[in-house]
Design a protein around this nucleic acid. Structure first.
Lengths: 214, 214, 214, 214
DNA sequence: TATGAATGAGTATTCATTCAT
DNA sequence: AATGAATGAATACTCATTCAT
């Protein structure tokens, strides 16, 4: 029957819309939470404030997240996912080991500049609660660093980089890029505009190459 | 005695107090607050606990500090002062430019390991807190970095380090040491014990030398 | 699946449900509610948990019961009915007056042990709840005591029990059985396992017989 | 100096008054808590409501009691103390074993009638939290029952009461008095005025004597 | 008939702060 | 100089209930 069909279509549409709304709200909560977490830190962060920010009652948040920790965990892992994907894309962009080194480096930098809040969250705050199980649909944090390690391992294998324990070398390289990025993000001591930031990072990448390449 | 209500707990602590009454109370508060601050961090820190620690009522603290923020500010700048003095001592410990580089580097590292919360506050958290006027008798944080710049300037002048804008080079060198230190402090991604931390830092110092020395 | 929010937990439970859909939902709710009520008691009882138990949303319960109190009232009177029927069955189990006395006594005891929360509610808590109109299809609680009075009246008539006002004597006999049962249920002063409880109750029944039989 | 003396006296008086006020408030909290606990039960009881009842903020309660449990525990043990003292006084009132039995029995009854709330609390509510350590200045609950046991033991020794395990016999005797008292207090099934209550209890005492004396 | 989304009121507890003394 | 009493605002979290669909 036509009517039935129309009804069915309506129902489907309405269902879809509600699902969309649900996703939207969930995303909205995550967004607000991210912002607040960044502003207030782990302890200063409160569900109440998140609720106020999004214009819902605190109770509503419990419809989307089990509790405060669950929400925070999701906030953090949302960022990790994006981060890992960016690095991976950088890695895949070329076959040349040095180019790859630079590509991953710039991917790292660009992610941090585009997502300062998440970056801070991931690498500059106390990370105790990262030890917990990742929430559903997320991989362990450590995965993202596999990319950096592969870059180094490739470099060594190609005879371009100094030999040594891959894990340790990766950590040091990472420390170099992280160091300059985090100083930029902290902002209180090194104050630069985006153009200066790019230059600074470029110089750091080259210095790092000098230190770890043959 | 009844089950320890806050009141009774305070009374107990007050006994302990009389014995130390000679020491200046203001200093005592600062000391206790610093300890708590290092243990619990910025948000975990509470006036009540400070009061309990020193065996006075919370009210008493208000006789010496305007409010919680005032106390914290003093605690924090106390640390900054120590930081500056440590770097300065490293600088003065030798006349050899390379030795000096290493000495300042290790002073930096040692301060961070001994005062992780202070370090985090200074370099890893958003700096609003630092924008405020330093309390009486304290210099701005930024002063500490003069030391690093002098190290680099000395190195260039002595023909040991690559030429370039001193400010920029200092920032990059600083980024290197800060990078590895902050990864260690964050702890969730690089997990090392103190001995491994030392080794890691030592390698980073050498790599930094390779990158910035001739 | 995400970490079990309340919503997702409900969804899971709803699977289980379809399999039993034949049984009347109202009965299912009552059953689940009774179980929870016995487990958690009057205050620990929550609609949410009932809903989760039966695999429906809390909202659904409102289609069958006006509100929480209405549901509870029905749960409670369901128990009262059972209590009356148990005593009655004890009464009918024999024609010998003394045997009858014992049979009703043990029925009383067994009900209390099997339905402690109901028992508490009926006899050990303030009776406001019981003052309300019984829900449709239920008789007032007090009816159950007619059985005890009949036991005593029978005993007197048969010349086995001491003469006196039946109502008063019944109350005293009832006090005896209730006394020991309620001490056992309260649990904090008399701690016995089920076997010891039986023995204690048996002794009490005999003592009561000594006190009220000729 | 006269002035100094006057000042001193004033200070003392003010100190005393404040201590009195403190005691008053503590007592006020206990009283309000008792009432509320009785009305709403263990789970329904809330610090907020206690606070409202006494006209202070909830926070204030924490100045006098460690937490909710501490308050409740004190409420209950306050009653136990009074109860134990009453029974003890009854015990000491005479040397005759039978008179003693009656004296303690009536002390029991009188306490319950005069302090129904505490009585209900002690013997008719769920007693899980009585397992905890008694608060400072209170003896374990069980002490009160020592009196009953002594009454029975005395009776047996004097050859007036039936032999048997003292503990068990005491429990049964206790069950008898408790049974009638608690039915009276519950009120919904046995409705009596004070005079009738006395008569009922007197009959119960005699019946109990018949059951347990030779 | 049943549900999903949302809420408002309530819970215990902790904290910084004030004020009279 | 120091304290005791008290408060108001904040926290995470749970619950009964409603309403549109």
């Amino acid at each position: 029957m036509t009517i039935a069909t129309r009804t069915t279509r309506l129902k489907e549409a309405s269902k879809k819309r509600r699902e969309q709304q649900k996703t939207d709200l969930r995303a909205g909560i995550l967004e607000a939470a991210t912002k607040l977490f960044e502003e207030k830190g782990y302890e200063g962060f409160s569900l109440r404030q998140v609720a106020e920010e999004i214009g819902y009652t605190p109770t509503t948040i419990y419809l989307y997240f089990k509790d405060k920790d669950d929400l925070l965990l999701n906030v953090v892992y949302e960022g990790f996912k994006l981060f890992g994907e960016s690095l991976e894309a950088g890695y895949r962009s070329t076959d040349d080991v040095l180019e790859r080194f630079r590509a991953v480096g710039w991917a790292y930098f660009n992610f941090a500049m585009a997502n300062p809040i998440h970056y801070r969250l991931m690498f500059m705050q106390r990370g105790e609660f990262l030890q917990e199980e990742p929430p559903e649909g997320h991989s362990p944090v450590i995965d993202s660093f596999g990319v950096i390690q592969r870059v180094i391992a490739d470099g060594i294998e190609a005879g371009v980089m100094r030999r040594g324990d891959v894990r340790t070398l990766s950590t040091l390289v990472w420390a170099n890029v992280h160091g300059v990025v985090s100083l930029i993000l902290t902002g209180s001591h090194v104050q630069v505009n985006m153009e200066e930031a790019r230059q600074l990072f470029g110089m750091q990448l080259e210095a790092t190459k000098r230190a770890f390449c043959i």
